[in-house]
Amino acid sequence: MNPLVTPEIGLLVWTTVSFAVLFFLLAKFAWKPIMAAIDTRERSIEDSLLKAEAAKEEMSRLTSENEALLKQARAERDVILHEAKKVKDQIISDAKEAAHTEGARMIEMARIEINSQKAIAMADVKNQVASLSLEIAEKVLKLQLADQQKQDELVSQLLKEVKL
């Protein structure tokens, strides 16, 4: 048999023993911690990536939510502004109307007052005029009827005027 393809017993034995020892030592002190460390690290990387992805999603969700909120707020603001404008207009028109009515009322009242005052004044004037006239008439009469002759004349005139 060719020596190349004849396994030597010594080498067989030593290889078996040495390989077993190598396998035991490497498996216990190298492969186990190495594979565990690699696995742990890979898992943590994967976790981190997943978390980052989740954070990104959360971010985009928040952004879109914010945008929606903003949009809603804007719409609300518009509504509020619109309403406020309406209320303002209402108030202004109300005030205008009130002012108008009040003004009219006051003018009316003033007119009434004026009229009443005017009436009072007129009455007063009338009285004054009447008394003045009476006084004048009295004075005139006094003056005219100072003597007896004139009195007789008047009586006779008056008697003449009276037609029976």
Binding site: L4, V5, P7, E8, I9, L11, L12, T15, T16, F19
Partner: peptide, 9 residues
């Protein structure tokens, strides 16, 4: 390249 070693493996 020794047959004994590859045999064991």
């Amino acid at each position: 390249g020794n047959i004994a070693v590859t045999l064991v493996l």
